[in-house]
Amino acid sequence: MIGRLRSQAVDTGKFLTDWMEHRTGILTMMEHFLYEPVPKRGAWLYTLGSATLFCISLQFLTGILLLFYYVPTVDHAWNSIYYIMEEAYFGTLIRGIHYWSANFLLVFIGLHMAQVFFSGGYKAPRELNWVVGVVLLLLVIVLAFTGYLLRWDQDGFWASVVGMKIGSYSPFVGGPTIHFLLGGDVTGPATLSRFFAIHVWLLPAALAPFIGIHLYLLRKHGVFGSEFEYSDRLAKLHERQRLEEYEKYEEDGHEEDGEPYLGRRDREDRE
């Protein structure tokens, strides 16, 4: 009885996965996305990119949750965060994750960048992935900057004022940029609304496609530093050196003797 049920369940499962695979190709896609040969040497360093992605996903998820209580107006922003921290169930946890994951996100990005830089992972054909990564870094920095003001406490407020004044020193574009961010010529209700819009919609919407491109390019070329890649490169290097050596001997041979070069051993034998 149980054996029959089990075999039926297995059959149903198989049927469903086959059905989905046939129509969407999802299994092949999952296999393609999930399984990636990673070099054994320094394997832990290759998790830094995933750690970054994990933190960004946490930001998206906890950010959506925080939006259920946060109010982006100057008279209620601080109160609503106070409510999240003091009254809402697990509010401290959700906001804590958002806060700490934002901090660790920047740490992971820094380490990830360092790893790619020192291992030479940005070299051809992966240059554009580095460029996309820099765009992602800048987007995350602006996200961190705009998120700071949303708390509307003394700390966040003054940090944002100082940040914006740093920007105001840029020649020509400084003033207009500041007026764009402030939503006027002084900090006020418009400033908070703008930072909210930028933090919650504009930048995440810009971030998502760039993450997609980053991952696509990664999958296209594979992670840098696999053993295969090293042996391949070494083989190419040896081949090039051999050819150079050959050319050199050929030139030397023609100039000295005026007779075709037939290989080193050949000449030694004759002597």
């Binding site: 003033g175 006027g184 010529d185 002084v186 006020g188 418009a190």
Partner: peptide, 17 residues
């Protein structure tokens, strides 16, 4: 729509105060 403040402040010389 988005650059409204720039038009008001930098082009028309208005202030929020």
């Amino acid at each position: 729509f988005v650059l409204g403040p720039l038009i008001d402040i930098d082009l028309r010389g208005q202030s929020d105060i």
